[in-house]
Simulated scan of single mutants.
Amino acid sequence: MTLSEDEIRERYRALALDWAAAKGEPKKANRIFKEHHGLYREIRDLELGCRVIESLLDDPEPSVRLLAATHALPFASARAEAVLRDLERGNGLYAMDAKYTLINFRTGRLNLEW
């Protein structure tokens, strides 16, 4: 990976926003989600990548926070769980996603290796 920290952050965030915008188009949303997960797989073992993901836990957009919190669970569990709990308590679009991400993480069934 030869992207800078800002380039990684911009790409990660843009894909998360594109995914959110495509919620009404399942095929498109799934394609974007897979692309986003591919980016995560590229950066997850890099200190720079983890730093970017953790920085996005404070993003104003819930879709960005949801994906960043999910991806931060392996290395910033306490902070990521707090973000997911906050999303779960809301009545927003991502409350159910956050709830089941937390359940799967706590029971050891969250698979980020695909």
Rank of each mutant, 00 (worst) to 15 (best):
K23Q: 14
S55P: 12
L84M: 05
R9I: 07
R79P: 01
E47R: 11
S4G: 03
F33W: 12
R11P: 04
A80V: 08
P62M: 07
R106D: 02
C50W: 11
G38F: 10
L66C: 03
L39W: 11
F33I: 01
A21T: 05
V64C: 12
G38L: 06
A22T: 02
D58Q: 14
L110T: 03
L73H: 08
G49F: 12
R11Q: 14
K34A: 09
S77T: 15
M1C: 06
P26E: 07
P74K: 04
E47P: 08
L39G: 07
C50L: 14
T107C: 11
T107G: 13
R85N: 04
L93P: 09
V64A: 11
E5F: 13
E54N: 14
L110S: 07
E113Y: 11
L57Y: 06
A69Q: 02
G49E: 10
Y100C: 02
I103F: 13
R51V: 03
V52H: 05
S77L: 09
A20F: 11
L46W: 04
E81G: 02
H37R: 06
T101G: 03
A20P: 00
E81W: 00
A98Y: 05
H37I: 01
A16K: 02
Y12M: 11
N104P: 00
R85Y: 06
K28A: 12
K34E: 02
R89M: 09
L67S: 01
A20R: 13
D45R: 00
E7I: 01
F105R: 10
L73Y: 09
E7W: 03
N91K: 08
L57P: 06
L46P: 00
E42A: 14
G49P: 14
G49I: 08
K23D: 15
D59Y: 12
V64F: 14
L102Y: 11
N91G: 15
E47A: 09
A76T: 02
F33M: 05
F33G: 07
A20T: 04
P60D: 12
D45P: 00
E113K: 13
A80I: 02
A80P: 06
A22E: 15
T101C: 12
